[in-house]
Design a binder for these strands. Structure first.
Lengths: 212, 212
DNA sequence: ATTCTTGCAAAGCGTTTGCATTGTT
DNA sequence: AACAATGCAAACGCTTTGCAAGAAT
């Protein structure tokens, strides 16, 4: 574990965050901090927010990841999502939990809705996690789908012993470079590909299993 | 209001979405749809998901927008967010709402947490919305901050009668082009700048007010 | 015939990262 | 002296958009 240093920038970032009663986005905080440290860069703010929240000094509010998800069912209902593979399911709550707050609690808002989201390990991830505490294990049920292009990319990676760049992968798989990065993303999400170095990718153990 | 056409692509997208019990991201759905329509493009999927959810035929699950937000308070607590200006506040719930589901309800998940998020109009937006049903009105309390750079950009826009590209803005404001796009984004978020055409920006009525 | 939709490629936007330099410990 | 942190610019990854061609009404 790295030792944290209290730099001036970090101090100001913490200070400003502490002052704000609302929860700022990185950019909002950046605008504030810049008034005190005009030369600070946005990257520093991002980095510090990550570092500080990893250290437990602040908290990241991140609901459902950042991908939009879509649902056939248009009636409002609640969800449960997996903190590992990010799958999202519906849940039904027996008693309709209060959809409105008491006036004393609503902070002056005019409430229009309430979302309740449980989080945890989905049935598939639950198994793999409890079995081996494995944070990098594949998640069988969640990762079954493997498109043709993904298979091509995975095969290309399986052939090379060293991490490959996306151009090499494109050449080896016969796909367009544009398409490759898209597949890489999907495969990383599934845990079949890792990126030991920036822009270099290699197949994981799980990836090999998935191919066979 | 435009009339929707039921194209083959749209039909398949709906069909596949309907089949899925989980809530797919655009990309996941795209992978599925591509098996039936190999020539479909990801953009079409994105477009249709937006169109269909705007039409109320499907539902977009989008919690707290996509920006990460940060919080000084590390203890878990619940939030209320404005559906108009996206500000986020803490709320305290008198009775701790059930943090765990009955086994019958948990869909096989191992629950680790529960987030409750109320949504509605914040005190400031509440006023403007009820006063004029105005969907484009500025939101005084939420939009107060105006950084130096933002002011420069806004002034530059105020001088030109026609929508300007970011290069023109950079020239007129004396800022780096890189910095301009960043400010534009912030200003758009605040409702001070609109983009009538792609890559062209103009100051809004609210923007003018904010300057004065 | 009109106008909505598509596929493609390119751009947008928030976020992250490589790298040389600076600053803390 | 060792190495964490910074500023900068470039890259990422998901999403949106301009455009010309195609399809639905």
């Amino acid at each position: 574990m790295k030792k944290l240093r209290m730099t001036h920038q970090r101090e100001i970032i913490l200070q400003e965050l502490k002052k704000m009663s609302r929860h700022p986005s990185a950019d909002e905080l950046y605008e504030r901090v810049k008034k005190k440290l005009p030369r600070i860069s946005l990257a520093t703010v991002y980095r510090n927010l990550e570092i500080l929240s990893a250290a437990g000094m602040i908290r990241k509010i991140e609901i459902s990841g950042r991908l939009k998800r879509f649902d056939w069912e248009t009636e409002p209902h609640n969800h449960i999502s997996c903190i590992r593979c990010h799958r999202v399911d519906n849940i039904e709550l027996k008693r309709r939990l209060t959809r409105t707050l008491k006036p004393a609690d609503n902070r002056g808002y005019k409430i229009s809705g309430c979302r309740i989201e449980f989080t945890g390990y989905c049935p598939a991830c639950r198994v793999t996690v409890t079995k081996k505490g494995g944070k990098k294990m594949g998640c069988k049920k969640c990762n079954t789908g493997l498109s043709d292009k993904q298979t091509l990319v995975l095969k290309a990676l399986a052939k090379s012993k060293d991490p490959s760049g996306s151009k090499d992968i494109a050449a080896a798989s016969g796909l367009e470079p544009k398409q490759v990065s898209c597949q890489i993303t999907a495969l990383k999400k599934k845990g079949f590909v890792s990126s030991p170095v920036r822009c270099k990718y290699e197949i994981t153990q799980e990836g090999k299993k998935a191919l066979s």
